[in-house]
Simulated assay, not measured.
Amino acid sequence: MCLVAHRKICKACRCSQEEHSLSSELEDDRRIGRLLADSQYSSLTARLKGGDGGRVYKRNRMIVTNPNISGKDPTFDTVTYEWAPPGLAQKLRCETCKQTVPGDCPVVFAARAGYARQWHPACFVCCRCAEPLADLIYFWKGGAPWCGRHYCESLRPRCAGCDEIIFSEDYQQVEGLAWHKKHFACLECEMPLMGKPFTLANTSLLCTICSQSKRL
């Protein structure tokens, strides 16, 4: 519920705080604690001392202080986060650029990387092509984020002819490059080259005739 702060009334229906029967923060923490107690997130709860044996949600507030040196005398900007992942230090350091993340800057967490690692949004990029991944689906492999294209390439070969992933086990491979069998053909005349002599220049396949004509 959203309240008008100075009058403690609901912005939607204009009724008083008492009519809404607002719960206290402790009551909310008890309810959340009961929900999480028997789940994989039970570590986010704690048993109340001298209580009835129930568990309460552990709020993990974090205060981040950053110096502001724009003026003659430095001041400090303080931001309080109502919740932060467990185990974080007060000062967040970016995994890529190793610079402290300002308190007013969004932070990217990758669930598969664990909460001990975080990035500036601009630093959360594919480890192969540096494509920004903050607002995209990402993959995690070898301790680093990957874009979809290069993650797939790490699992399956990509055809040098059509630029698509090869899912079949029956394909042609030459000098570290791969082709669907139907795409293993001369770039100029499109003659199939399976079992025939050919030349390879960069990623271009040429039959003997087309290769010789290019030299003339």
Rank of each mutant, 00 (worst) to 15 (best):
T75D: 09
C97P: 04
I32T: 14
D38R: 13
R149K: 14
E175V: 00
T45N: 06
A144D: 09
R34W: 11
K98W: 15
N202D: 12
Y57S: 03
G161R: 05
A134P: 04
H183F: 01
R55M: 12
Q99E: 14
P197C: 04
M62S: 11
K182W: 08
I166H: 01
P102S: 05
W119D: 03
L3G: 02
I137M: 15
L155Y: 05
P86Y: 04
P74M: 07
L88F: 08
T203C: 05
K91F: 11
C123E: 05
W179L: 00
Y151N: 04
C123S: 00
A116D: 13
R156F: 15
A134Q: 08
F198G: 01
S16P: 06
A111C: 12
N68I: 11
I69Q: 13
T208W: 07
R215M: 10
S16L: 09
E175M: 00
T65P: 07
L92H: 08
A144H: 08
V108G: 00
E164I: 06
G142L: 01
Y138C: 06
A185M: 03
V64Q: 12
C105M: 12
H6T: 15
P145Y: 02
E153D: 14
K182V: 08
L26P: 10
W83H: 13
K58R: 15
T96Y: 10
C2W: 14
L44V: 07
K181S: 04
E169F: 08
L200C: 01
M191G: 08
S213Y: 08
Y81T: 03
T78W: 06
V107L: 04
A178I: 01
P145A: 03
I166C: 04
L193F: 02
S24M: 06
G143T: 03
F76D: 12
H6L: 15
F139H: 15
Q118W: 03
K181T: 04
A5S: 12
C127S: 14
P102R: 05
K91W: 11
A185L: 01
A185T: 01
I209M: 10
T208D: 11
V108N: 00
C2E: 15
P192T: 05
T80M: 10
T75S: 13
D28L: 14
N68L: 09
